[in-house]
Amino acid sequence: MELHFMGTGAGMPSKERNVTSICLNMNEERGTMWMFDCGEGTQHQILRTSLKLGRLEKLFITHLHGDHLYGLPGVLTSRSNHGAETHLDLYGPAGLRAFVETALRVSEAFLGYTYTIHEVEEGVVFEDEQVRVLATKLEHRIESFGYRIEEKEKPGRLCHEKLKALGIPPGPQYAQIKRGEDITLTDGSRLKSADFLEAPIPGRQVVILGDTRVLNKTIAFSKNADVLVHEATFGQEREALARKYYHATAAQAAHIASEAKAATLILTHISSRYQHGEEQTLLKEAKEQFENTHLARDFWYFSIPRKTASHS
């Protein structure tokens, strides 16, 4: 599981940073990729990476400002041109359906796959046996959401040695125990699966927030996240400007990460006012409150390590 940053700028592109888009590469876990926001030029950015639009399974939009949305028609049609035939799910605020359907209708675009648009509200927006995604409303000029991706707990390692010691050969019963099912042997004795499984492996938690003023509610939403991705449009010297335009500073993002007890904070959505190394001041301000902070840049990626088995 890796976060790939396709665009890390705010408002408009610069020579150093394209507008916002983040890919969550889950090739190992699901054989797919998810995308969060799709600013103009995102399809061009992806061409400079090893990521493939054909593997795009879900696309989440935080809000409908152009720097998070205008690349969507190009990504949708390029995905088709790359030969993708699998279904695509799109999630975002009310208005996403009108934008997508209008763009595709007016341009007479052809998509060689089906898609579903989900206009989200707060709460669970997707869940299957592997992962759950929750949304929360933020505070921005227009409706804006944050998403929490929760990987579900996995069963612990099967204790093959203990089973073999009881004379049970590898086979279907091993699979039953791995699934957490108790089994009955031919002699009538019953084995509890919990006695033959190591401690379960906790799932990873990733929080990706859209544009927002600093909000206390995001502390609970980001609680114990392995990674929190938070906007840091401005430095402390522009805190009043950040509030005026419904954005956050790097130091405010660090405060949220610290209070939420997140493991890692990644700053993105950097104003074009900070170029040629000036953005390092944002990183410095954040690290004063939360040491494990990274400043994202275009084409940078962050690997999210698997957690060790829980023994609680």
Rank of each mutant, 00 (worst) to 15 (best):
L104T: 08
F145T: 08
I304G: 09
E2H: 05
V120P: 00
I304R: 12
H68W: 03
E122Q: 10
T218S: 06
N27F: 02
T8E: 08
Q130G: 10
G31P: 09
T233R: 02
E151R: 01
I149H: 05
T186W: 08
R238S: 12
Q130L: 15
P200I: 07
Y246A: 12
E16M: 10
E198L: 12
H44M: 11
Y147F: 14
K178N: 11
R17Y: 02
T102V: 04
I201W: 00
L88T: 05
I117F: 00
L47S: 13
T186L: 14
Y245M: 10
L166E: 06
S78G: 04
R141D: 12
N18M: 12
T116K: 08
I117N: 01
A250E: 00
D37T: 14
L209A: 15
T264S: 07
C159H: 09
G66M: 06
L185W: 03
T114E: 13
D226Q: 05
S258P: 00
G9W: 08
H118Y: 07
V106C: 03
K217A: 11
A194C: 09
I266Q: 03
L138V: 09
L282M: 07
L185K: 09
P170Q: 03
S80Y: 01
P155S: 11
E153A: 13
A257W: 05
K52L: 11
Y113K: 10
E181N: 13
A296W: 01
A232E: 01
S189E: 02
I177G: 08
G171S: 02
I208V: 14
E101W: 04
D67T: 07
L76H: 06
A10L: 14
H63D: 15
I149W: 13
A286T: 06
L283K: 12
L3E: 09
L3R: 04
R179H: 12
K164V: 11
V133A: 05
I219H: 03
A262P: 02
A232T: 01
A262V: 14
H247V: 12
D67G: 01
D37P: 02
F299Y: 14
S310K: 06
F221G: 07
R55Q: 15
F145R: 09
T136H: 08
T218V: 15
H269L: 10
H160T: 13
G167S: 03
